[in-house]
Design a protein around this nucleic acid. Structure first.
Lengths: 227, 227
DNA sequence: TGTCGTATTATGGTATACCAACATACCGAC
DNA sequence: GTCGGTATGTTGGTATACCATAATACGACA
């Protein structure tokens, strides 16, 4: 989609290095839940699973380690980072700050293209919700927020939020599923979008906070039950 | 100091791997300004400078890349990340959110040990200021904030702030130096500490915001002048 | 004289070889 | 039977060798 917007004559040249692919694959594997918290990431096993050499695997692991998705135990190697409620709670708190701020900033500068993109994202969200397609719902939610952060010019905050999100990905998937049942999932998002389109910064921030407060509450109950 | 608090019979075993040392050295080199933004980080050169093999250097670079301190250009290798004002501004914005929130949280739960540590950090800060020792001032400021974040239980936010700080380290050093001349450097910190000790969450947050607003303003003028 | 092509070199990407340390299991002695 | 020691295998840490590519410089031809 939107092939024409920015892609001049540029030859793609796809410099996708093996390492980048490996990072992506591993990150996805962790996010999707193929590896669970605490699982050991044995290098040589990953080598044959990914079909690359140890150098590639190791550098990928270093990257994910800095991201917080993997932690390396002394003399025992990398494991998938565990997530307990105290840490998850901190992540939700930070998200609340950053996302509310981004939404407010976005609401302050009206921009028709942004509004259009926001509503498009909302439609996709609703469609995924109606189709009961969790994977799509997850993706659509991400797009929705990305529109907000980009429009606000908060690139760095968006990077941080994405990184945090991948750390709570499983929780997030569960939360999205649960939210569907309790309150209409996209209803929250619609409220956020409406406030932004109305240039209501405070309203947008409040809507985000409400949404995340709910999500955090669900996450808490999930995590504490699990324990 | 405080040998007895937690160090049972545990053998230290210093698992400091070469990689961790390399990361630390490189990060410091970048922070201190030994490498400037845009400088190429030629792997083989770093190898002989650090006295380690390429594997170590490369993994260290991957880590710093994920931290945002280094970026790897396609087919040209890693360079030290450049910092322009739009990005620096975002970093100051995020710091304002996180630090104000941490200070408020810290102020909400009174804790004598924290207050003592805060005042100790303040003394060090004042001492470094009086001695006109920029390096010490920088370190003392870091300690001051660390006390706040730890007391608030905001470990993850602290990690993020540290990472952001290393990306604007040169700015920060300049800013601290400049702040000294304009308004008394530690005066801001003292106001923050006072509000926390008085359990005044809003006051603490306001004080932090004021401080960072000032710092950002100085940083902006520095960056735009430089251009 | 300018432009195109080729050769050389430097650099990053990838793979692999080697080593040290930890864990485990087995065996012997008390 | 239990405790201790030794041997072996697995794993991560480190170093190095090899390859592909991109930049640069030099030379030839128009």
């Amino acid at each position: 989609m939107e092939q024409t917007q920015d892609s001049d004559l540029r030859i793609d040249h796809s410099p996708a290095t093996l390492r980048q692919l490996a990072v992506e694959r591993l990150r996805q594997a962790i996010i999707v839940g193929r590896f669970n918290g605490g699982d050991r990431l044995v290098e040589r096993t990953l080598c044959e699973q990914l079909g690359v050499s140890r150098s590639v695997v190791r550098e990928a692991i270093r990257y994910l380690e800095a991201e917080g998705l993997v932690e390396t135990l002394a003399r025992s190697g990398p494991v998938v980072a565990r997530l307990d409620w105290p840490r998850a709670r901190q992540i939700y708190d930070i998200r609340r700050l950053l996302e509310a701020d981004a939404a407010a900033a976005c609401a302050r500068k009206p921009d028709d293209a942004t509004k259009a993109r926001l509503n498009a994202a909302l439609r996709d969200l609703q469609a995924a919700f109606d189709a009961a397609a969790p994977q799509d719902l997850y993706a659509a939610t991400t797009v929705f927020y990305e529109v907000i952060f980009r429009a606000a010019g908060h690139d760095i905050a968006w990077e941080i939020v994405q990184r945090l999100n991948s750390r709570i990905s499983r929780l997030r998937a569960l939360t999205l599923a649960t939210t569907n049942r309790r309150v209409s999932g996209p209803a929250h998002m619609a409220r956020i979008a409406a406030a932004i389109c109305a240039n209501d910064a405070e309203g947008a921030a409040d809507a985000v906070r409400a949404h995340l407060g709910d999500a955090a509450e669900i996450a808490r109950s999930l995590l504490e039950d699990a324990r």
